[in-house]
C-alpha cells in the first residue's frame, strides 16, 4: 500500500472511536440544549424552546452561585498547585537518596482515585473521630470542636486541599521536566557573575520556565473545571450550596431533577468557559514561544 493512502487508513480506527464517542454525543447534547425535555414527564424530547434554557441559567441564583463557587475553586487550586509544584520541583531537582524516595512517593497521589481521596479526607476531618480534626485540635486548642465540613469556608478549603494533594505531585513532575531542559550553563554563568540564589530563580530559572508553567496552568485549570468526584464524596455540594461547583450543579440538574434540556444547556456553558480559557492560555503560550525563538 502506498504511504499516501496508508496514512489515512492508520487514522481510521481512532477517529471512528473519537467521532462516535465524542462528537456524536456533543451534537446530540447541543440539540437537546435547545429543547424542553423533562425526563420525569416524557421519555422523548419535547418542543424546541430556542435559547430559553440558556436565558434561564443567567437569571437563576442557583446557577450563578455555582459559577461563583467554581471560580473560587479554580483560582485557588490552580494558584496553590502551581506554587507548590514549582517549589517541590526546585527542592527535588538535586540528586540524593532522600530526593529519589520523595520523588517515588509523589507518584502515589495521582494514581489514587479522586473519589477515594474525597472519602479519606471526609474521614480524617470528621469532627468526632477524624484524625486530622483531633490532631489539629491537640496542637491548636482553639480549633477544638470545629465542625470542619459543616462550615462553608472550611469545606471549600478542604475541597481545594484534596485537589491540590491530588494534582500538585503530578504537576511537580512536569516542572521537573521543565527544569531539566534548562541548560545548566545559564545558571552556572549567572552564579559566576555573582548572582544570589533568589536572583537566579527570578532572573534565570523562572523566565525559562514560563512555557512549562503555562502548559501546567492550562492543564490544571481544565482539571479543576472538570473536578467532580470529590464534591460527591467529600461535601456533597454542601453545606448548603457552598461547594456546589458548576460540574456538580449540572449533574444535579440532569440526574436529580431530570431536566435534560436545562442540563445540556448548562453543560455547553461549561464547555464554552473551558474553551475560552484554553484558547486564551494557548494564545499566551504561542506569543511566549515566539518571543523565545526570536
Amino acid at each position: 500500500m502506498r504511504d499516501r493512502s496508508l496514512q489515512y487508513v492508520l487514522l481510521v480506527p481512532a477517529f471512528v472511536i473519537v467521532l462516535a464517542t465524542t462528537f456524536y454525543p456533543l451534537a446530540y447534547s447541543l440539540t437537546t440544549a435547545f429543547r424542553d425535555w423533562d425526563l420525569t414527564r416524557s421519555r422523548r424530547p419535547e418542543g424546541w424552546v430556542g435559547f430559553d434554557n440558556f436565558a434561564h441559567a443567567f437569571t437563576e441564583s442557583h446557577f450563578l452561585n455555582s459559577l461563583w463557587v467554581t471560580t473560587i475553586f479554580v483560582v485557588t487550586s490552580v494558584a496553590l498547585t502551581l506554587v507548590i509544584a514549582m517549589s517541590l520541583a526546585l527542592l527535588l531537582r538535586r540528586k540524593g537518596r532522600m530526593h529519589t524516595f520523595t520523588r517515588v512517593v509523589l507518584i502515589l497521589p495521582f494514581a489514587m482515585s479522586p473519589a477515594l481521596i474525597g472519602v479519606s479526607y471526609r474521614f480524617m476531618f470528621n469532627p468526632e473521630f477524624g484524625v486530622l480534626s483531633n490532631g489539629l485540635a491537640a496542637i491548636f486548642p482553639w480549633l477544638e470542636g470545629t465542625a470542619w465540613l459543616a462550615d462553608p469556608e472550611l469545606a471549600m478549603a478542604i475541597l481545594v486541599l484534596t485537589d491540590v494533594w491530588h494534582w500538585a505531585p503530578y504537576m511537580t513532575f512536569m516542572c521537573l521536566g521543565g527544569l531539566a531542559s534548562i541548560p545548566r550553563e545559564t545558571e552556572e554563568a549567572a552564579r559566576i557573575d555573582g548572582a544570589s540564589n533568589i536572583r537566579i530563580f527570578f532572573g534565570i530559572i523562572l523566565p525559562q520556565m514560563k512555557g512549562v508553567l503555562l502548559v501546567t496552568a492550562i492543564l490544571k485549570t481544565i482539571f479543576a473545571l472538570k473536578m467532580f468526584d470529590q464534591v460527591v464524596t467529600l461535601t456533597g455540594g454542601g453545606p448548603g450550596t457552598s461547594t456546589e461547583t458548576l460540574a456538580y450543579f449540572i449533574f444535579n440538574v440532569g440526574f436529580e431533577w431530570y431536566d435534560m434540556g436545562y442540563a445540556s444547556a448548562l453543560a455547553w456553558i461549561l464547555t464554552a468557559i473551558m474553551m475560552t480559557i484554553s484558547i486564551w492560555y494557548v494564545r499566551m503560550l504561542l506569543s511566549e514561544r515566539k518571543m523565545a525563538t526570536a
Binding site: T21, P25, T32, A247, S264, A267, L270, M274
Partner: peptide, 19 residues
C-alpha cells in the same frame, strides 16, 4: 483530537445516558 480534552465529561455523559 486535542480539543476533546477541553470538553467536560458531563457534556458527553448526558446524551450517552439518554441513548
Amino acid at each position: 483530537v486535542l480539543s476533546t480534552q477541553f470538553i467536560p465529561a458531563v457534556v458527553i455523559v448526558l446524551p450517552f445516558f439518554l441513548m
